[in-house]
C-alpha cells in the first residue's frame, strides 16, 4: 500500500504534460512523470520515493508505437518492452529488452521509464546507445532532438519538467550484425550481473555494457582500442583502463566475479566477431 496521497493527471498531449508539470511546480508541488509505473509504484510503496502528483504520459499518442520514415525508425517512449520486442524492425532491440524482468512485467515497463529509471541497469538503453539514436526530449519550451550518446552520461540529462518522447534510429543500422550476453546470479528473472551488447558495422565493433558499473555505458575509447588491437588477450588485459567507473560490488556478486564474467563474455564476443567478416 502506498502510504501517502498524491494527485494524478493524464494529459492528452505533450504540451499539456509540460504545462501541468510547470503549473504544479509553480504551486510548490513536487510532480513526477509516470509511464509504466513499475518503478514509481514500487518505490512509493517502500517509501523510498515521494511526490505530490503523478503525470501519466501513456495517453500521449505521439509517444506510443513506432513509425518508419525516410531518415529512420522512431520508437515512442511509451512503447512497452513487449511492444518493442515484438516490433521486428530491429530484432536486436527485442533480444536485449526481452531479458528485462519477466514477460508479464514487460507488458508495463516502457522504454522511457526503463531508460529514465533510478536503477543502475536500464538495459533498454544498450541498443539505442549502440545505434547512435537520437533522443527526443520535450519540455515547456517545446521539443528537441539530441544525440543520445551526448545526452546520456551515467544518466540522461533532463532539466526539470523535461521528459523523453521517443528515440530515432537510422535505417542503416538494420544491416549491422549484433550479439549480446547476459549473466545473472542464479535465476534468469533477475537483474543482470553483466549485460554486454555489441554490434558490428562498417565502423567496426561497438560495445555497450550494463550491470558492471553503477550505470550503463558505451565507451568510445574502449571501442577504439578494441578495433585497433588484434589480440584478444591484450584487450582483456587492458580493458579496465576504458571502464568509466569502478566495478560494482553488492549482494548479487562481488566485483571480482563481475570482472571474471566481463572478461569471459568480452572474449566470447570478440571471438565471435573474429569469425564474422
Amino acid at each position: 500500500m502506498i502510504s501517502f496521497d498524491f494527485e494524478y493527471y493524464r494529459p492528452d498531449d505533450i504540451k499539456e504534460a509540460a504545462e501541468v508539470y510547470a503549473q504544479l511546480q509553480k504551486d510548490g508541488k513536487n510532480p513526477l512523470y509516470f509511464s509504466g509505473g513499475t518503478e514509481v509504484i514500487t518505490m512509493a510503496r517502500k517509501g523510498t520515493l515521494k511526490f505530490d502528483a503523478l503525470i501519466d504520459l501513456k495517453n500521449i499518442k505521439e509517444m506510443n508505437g513506432y513509425r518508419e520514415d525516410e531518415d529512420g525508425i522512431y520508437f515512442g517512449a511509451n512503447m512497452t518492452l513487449n511492444e518493442a520486442a515484438e516490433a521486428k524492425v530491429f530484432p536486436f532491440i527485442g533480444e536485449v529488452v526481452r531479458t528485462i524482468g519477466d514477460h508479464t512485467i514487460r507488458n508495463r515497463i516502457t522504454l522511457g521509464g526503463n531508460i529514465c529509471g533510478r536503477l543502475p541497469y536500464r538495459e533498454a538503453l544498450l541498443p539505442f546507445l549502440l545505434y547512435d539514436a537520437q533522443v527526443y526530449i520535450a519540455g515547456i519550451n517545446g521539443k528537441k532532438a539530441l544525440p543520445l550518446n551526448e545526452a546520456f552520461n551515467k544518466r540522461l540529462s533532463l532539466s526539470a519538467g523535461e521528459f523523453v518522447v521517443g528515440f530515432k534510429v537510422a535505417g542503416k543500422f538494420k544491416n549491422s550484425k549484433y550479439q549480446s550476453i547476459r549473466k545473472v546470479r542464479t535465476s534468469e528473472i533477475d537483474y543482470p550481473l553483466l549485460h554486454i551488447a555489441s554490434i558490428k558495422d562498417e565502423e567496426g565493433i561497438k560495445i555497450a555494457v550494463s550491470g558492471l558499473c553503477a550505470f550503463p555505458f558505451r565507451s568510445y575509447e574502449l571501442e577504439k582500442y578494441v578495433n585497433g588491437t588484434p589480440n584478444t588477450v591484450e584487450i582483456i588485459n587492458n580493458v579496465y583502463r576504458f571502464i568509466p567507473a569502478s566495478v560494482k560490488e553488492d549482494n548479487l556478486a562481488t566485483a571480482e566475479y563481475r570482472k571474471a564474467l566481463f572478461e569471459m563474455s568480452l572474449e566470447k564476443i570478440l571471438e565471435k566477431w573474429g569469425e564474422v567478416k
Binding site: 542464479t186 535465476s187 534468469e188 528473472i189 533477475d190 549482494n251 548479487l252
Partner: peptide, 16 residues
C-alpha cells in the same frame, strides 16, 4: 537481512 523481497530472494521458476 539484505534480500527480504522476492525481487532479491529467488525461488525456482518454471524455466528452472
Amino acid at each position: 537481512v539484505l534480500n527480504r523481497d522476492l525481487r532479491s530472494y529467488k525461488t525456482l521458476r518454471i524455466g528452472d
